[in-house]
Design a protein around this nucleic acid. Structure first.
Length: 106
DNA sequence: GGTTTGACCCGTT
DNA sequence: CAACGGGCCAAAC
């Protein structure tokens, strides 16, 4: 699996609990920081067998994906809160604290 | 092999 | 401060 989306799956799977990564960040780990759109598309077409923490992947503003993807924004928010992620009053993630920083990633 | 799309990002109006 | 458009990249049709 040398496909770009394959690397996206692996990068997303590396996201530790209690943290969140932006599409742009995942795209960067995949090899193309500008292919942020591809990241989201890759997850939508990702194999159901894999349990990718797609709920930990959010856009740059910290806003969650549109409804209908996870079954509702509230669902995704609940999953993140259950992992220890804090949210702002606007319904956005506190990127300041939970933005994943891949420094010495394996 | 060309066209369309897509869970985005950034700048401008 | 909110809305609109253009740009990028990679996969599906």
């Amino acid at each position: 699996m040398d496909s770009f989306n394959a690397r996206v799956y692996r990068a997303v799977a590396k996201i530790p609990e209690g943290k969140v990564a932006t599409y742009g960040l995942i795209a960067g780990l995949a090899g193309s920081p500008r292919a942020s759109r591809q990241v989201g598309w890759a997850m939508h077409g990702s194999p159901r067998g894999l349990r990718l923490p797609c709920h930990r992947v959010v856009n740059r503003t910290g806003a969650l994906a549109p409804e209908g993807v996870f079954g509702g924004r509230d669902v995704q928010r609940a999953m993140l809160e259950a992992e220890g992620v804090t949210f702002l009053g606007d319904g956005r993630i506190d990127m300041r604290k939970h933005l994943w920083e891949p420094d010495v990633e394996a």
